[in-house]
């Protein structure tokens, strides 16, 4: 399988960490690290990934790795990249900044924008599990419409999160960067290809990976990959690739009804009883399908 090297001892994100069973982020982060290879320095934002991989005195990382704070992974990476330029090692060492959806699209947005605008040679990877999972499933700017989270709860006057996802990928693309793409843990070979391709470009590049969270989305841990695939197949999570501002590839799908994706997750269960609200979610999928021409 892609991103899986034959000898598990050579995984750059080793096993034995404390992620939950079925954690999509743990799988995706390992694929990213393996695809980037050992000559990499990773700057990691605060969040589940940092917590479950590095409880002192242990670390699951076999690459040079640093965690500083929640909102500054892109800025810390900028400093690392600047230092490598100063040391004359920039062609030899790759720099990755990574964080969750909250650390990227909300509190770290300014630092990310600065990093992209300044043109640093860094790949930023956002692991999008669509809420603040590490603190107990609060909504973020990347929480989807009508998702039931602990701070966008369903109630007499609420259908869940009142807003659709922030268009993070488009915001990244708007910085005139050479490469930006979305990916999904359901397609490991695609993640690996995109990481490798991104790292061939000079300058800033951006990758947003959809990673189900069984605890936060309330689904069976064995369904992580299936649910991630359904997000793509329903049009709710389009997989697209931009080079220099232009869409260069789109994963086409035989479109499935959104209910197939929603019904497997506790966070959306309330929607199945509310046809008008469900219609709003369908519109989100439809807009994606039209925008990117997703349908086969």
């Amino acid at each position: 399988m892609a991103g899986v090297v034959a000898d598990p001892k050579r995984h750059l994100l080793a096993s034995g960490h404390t992620a939950c069973a079925g954690c999509g982020q743990a799988i995706a982060a390992r694929i990213v690290a393996n695809a980037a290879g050992p000559k990499t320095i990773i700057s990691n934002a605060t969040g589940c990934l940092e917590v479950f991989t590095t409880k002192a005195p242990q670390s699951a990382w076999r690459v040079a790795w640093i965690h500083s704070l929640f909102e500054n992974a892109a800025a810390v990476a900028s400093g690392i990249e600047a230092a490598l330029r100063y040391l004359g090692r920039i062609d030899e060492v790759k720099v990755i900044a990574q964080g969750g959806d909250g650390g990227t699209a909300d509190i770290g947005m300014g630092a990310l924008s600065g990093m992209l605008e300044r043109g640093h040679g860094i790949l930023y990877v956002c692991y999008d599990n669509e809420a603040y999972m590490n603190t107990g499933v609060q909504r973020s700017g990347l929480t989807p419409l009508d998702s039931n989270t602990t701070t966008s709860p369903v109630g007499k006057r609420s259908h869940g999160n009142p807003r659709p996802k922030k268009p993070l990928l488009e915001i990244a693309v708007a910085h005139n960067i050479p490469y930006a793409a979305s990916a999904s843990v359901a397609y490991p070979a695609d993640i690996e290809r995109k990481v490798k391709k991104a790292l061939e470009y000079k300058g800033p590049k951006f990758l947003q990976i959809h990673v189900p969270c069984p605890l936060g989305w309330r689904h069976d841990p064995s369904l992580t990959v299936e649910i991630a695939r359904l997000a793509v197949e329903t049009g709710l999570y389009p997989l697209v690739e931009y080079e220099n501002g232009k869409v260069v590839s789109v994963r086409k799908v035989k479109v499935k009804p959104v209910e197939e994706y929603l019904k497997l997750q506790g966070r959306f269960r309330h929607l199945l009883k509310e046809p008008e609200v469900l219609e709003e979610v369908r519109k989100v999928a439809q807009a994606n399908i039209e925008k990117y021409g997703l349908a086969i």
């Binding site: 320095i41 700057s43 640093i66 500083s68 704070l69 909102e71 500054n72 892109a74 800025a75 810390v76 990476a77 900028s78 400093g79 690392i80 990249e81 600047a82 230092a83 490598l84 330029r85 100063y86 040391l87 300014g110 630092a111 924008s113 600065g114 605008e117 300044r118």
Partner: peptide
């Protein structure tokens, strides 16, 4: 390398990252 950042939070974070790189 002079890094013109978008905030002091990032200025401190940039020098943190560079210092950590030696």
């Amino acid at each position: 390398e002079f890094i013109n950042v978008e905030s002091e939070h990032s200025a401190a974070s940039v020098v943190l990252g560079a210092s950590a790189t030696g």
